[in-house]
């Protein structure tokens, strides 16, 4: 049962080739897992959001969105960064309160309230949203993003997080 010499050489060769593959795989895993984890680590951190008082309920008119600018501090790596954003707070006819970001869901331009047509319009590509934030015309694929809202003692609070 002696193998011909050529075959033996070939099987030895296969052993070494497979050995290199195994070692390369181990090195790849041993380095790849920490390095990829290290790269994506900040994305896995939960951002903390606080409630921000932005408007007085008594001063709101139903059906008239109020444009508010709010500021909050965000942890940016090892620093804290002040971030400013704009939202529309809406008091509906039934007394319900919603807060919409002013960011068009198409490509992120700032939408404006058009008081005469009672719609939000986007200046970039002609997206149109109704007072609920739903798309009525143009390219936007989704309604305007609703932020978390609460009302306490006639003060309206929002949180910079999707409802």
């Amino acid at each position: 049962m002696e193998l011909p010499e050529a075959n033996e050489t070939l099987s030895r060769r296969r052993f070494f080739v497979n050995g290199i593959k195994v070692v390369a795989g181990l090195l790849g895993l041993g380095l790849g897992i920490p390095l990829v984890g290290f790269f994506i680590a900040p994305a896995l951190k939960k951002e903390q959001h606080d409630w921000i008082a932005i408007a007085d309920l008594n001063l709101m008119n139903a059906g008239e969105p109020a444009k508010v600018t709010y500021q909050y501090t965000r942890r940016d790596g090892w620093k804290t960064a002040e971030t400013r954003k704009t939202a529309f707070v809406v008091k509906h006819a039934d007394g319900k309160i919603t807060a919409l970001t002013n960011k068009c869901t198409h490509l992120g331009c700032g939408v404006e309230w058009n008081a005469s047509s009672k719609q939000f319009t986007c200046p970039c590509h002609g997206g149109v949203f109704d007072i609920q934030g739903n798309v009525t015309a143009g390219p936007p694929p989704k309604p305007l993003t609703r932020l978390m809202v609460k009302v306490e003692v006639n003060k309206i609070f929002i949180k910079d997080a999707q409802q």
Binding site: P34, L35, F38, F39, L44, G77, W78
Partner: peptide
């Protein structure tokens, strides 16, 4: 990979390395 979190200025260099060392997953290992 360490360069991802390193800013070469006196304040940021120390804070960045501290961030790598104490706050980031696998930071101490890398």
């Amino acid at each position: 990979f360490l360069m991802l979190y390193y800013v070469p200025s006196p304040d940021n260099a120390y804070a960045g390395v501290n961030y790598i060392q104490n706050e980031l997953a696998f930071g101490g290992l890398v």
